[in-house]
């Protein structure tokens, strides 16, 4: 069963959720200083900005930039008690919903990451559908996105069509049913297609690993790691021990984001660096996004959001680089596992 939320009650709906105690409402908000859109706690309805997707991804809410794993006092280890506040995320685009799903996969594969899932379980994801690509960097139509949401909002002019995607979503809606009306309207898959967003033309990029174009394209890379930081799917991390300056025996171990575009990402004892040149590091990122993850889980890690291109200071367009590689003369040396 689908629901309708009239635009004239939309602000009432948002304001009523904002007033609820014990729940945070997180939505895209445009910064007044630099026009950058970012997910943050919504204070008033007028701050909500649905014009464009957020510049920064949502991942930092679940996969924290700095997560305290435990604290230590000499020989004693204590795990901080975490009680995440329930959070409603509103206005999440299809690409980002998929990226969150990929991180769910990564953090539950083999063993289950408690720190990540505490936050995930406290969250309800409400999507906002794009009918058109946002700019030329988007290529979500090429990477086979799936439906992953608790609720999905489709903008239909003077109302939102709302689809339920999970029990959590249904429960959330039921609590606020006074704003919604039942409807029999359904959007066909064809109507939901995001137009002009299949810019990446290659289905399988494996044969192009040794292609000469990589080097030319990657020569511009500054190694700034913006691509890693902005990517909603990238999930690599490292541990750091932060000690108290007054007592070096006390401190905490922290999990931080790390970036495969940095040399020391693969450095081992003896100062040996496995991916010492930029091209290999760049390719490692692309191939993890578009091949390795797929081999394991049957879907791409990359959700085609385009942030890594949009946010790159030299605008290295890996989609363009891949598109320009000709199938006829590939260097067929497939990377061996």
């Amino acid at each position: 069963m689908n629901y309708v939320l009239k635009k004239e009650v939309f602000s009432k709906f948002v304001n009523s959720v904002l007033k609820e105690k014990g729940i945070d409402f997180i939505a895209p908000v445009k910064s007044e200083q630099n026009d950058i859109i970012k997910f943050q706690k919504l204070i008033s309805f007028s701050d909500l900005c649905l014009d464009k997707n957020a510049y920064y991804p949502l991942k930092e809410w679940f996969f924290k930039k700095n997560e305290v794993l435990f604290e230590f006092k000499g020989d004693k280890i204590t795990i901080p008690e975490k009680k995440p506040k329930p959070k409603i995320f509103f206005g999440v685009r299809r690409c980002d919903l998929n990226s969150i799903n990929r991180q769910d996969v990564a953090f539950s594969e083999g063993c289950w990451d408690p720190y990540y899932f505490l936050e995930r379980e406290a969250s309800t994801l409400i999507g906002y559908h794009c009918f058109e690509k946002e700019d030329n960097y988007c290529f979500c139509g090429s990477v086979g996105l799936e439906d992953h949401y608790d609720l999905m909002f489709y903008d239909r002019g003077d109302y939102f069509l709302v689809e339920i995607g999970s029990k959590k979503g249904a429960w959330f809606l039921k609590q606020r049913i006074r704003f919604f009306k039942k409807t029999t309207e359904r959007l066909s898959a064809r109507k939901k297609v995001i137009k002009n967003a299949n810019r990446l033309q290659k289905k399988n990029i494996a044969p192009f690993y040794d292609h000469k174009n990589w080097k030319k394209g990657v020569d511009l890379c500054l190694g700034c790691t913006s691509c890693n930081t902005l990517c909603p799917s990238c999930y690599c991390f490292e541990f750091k021990d932060k000690v108290n300056i007054s007592n070096l025996k006390n401190g905490k171990r922290i999990r931080e984001w790390s970036a495969c575009q940095l040399k020391d990402f693969s450095e081992v004892a003896g100062n040996h660096i496995f991916r010492s040149d930029r091209e290999h590091r760049f390719k490692h990122r692309i191939y993890h996004q578009l091949q390795y993850f797929n081999e394991k889980h049957g879907k791409h890690l990359c959700s085609g959001c385009g942030r890594c291109i949009r946010g790159c200071p030299t605008r290295i367009d890996f989609v363009g680089i891949l598109n320009n590689m000709k199938t006829k003369k590939p260097n067929v040396k497939k990377p061996k596992k």
Partner: peptide, 20 residues
């Protein structure tokens, strides 16, 4: 094989060789 390791549990990505 020897690689840099952080988590040991197939999460942090540091030890990856072509997806392994």
């Amino acid at each position: 094989a020897e690689r840099r390791m952080q988590c040991g549990g197939g999460k942090c990505g540091h030890c990856m060789i072509h997806g392994v």
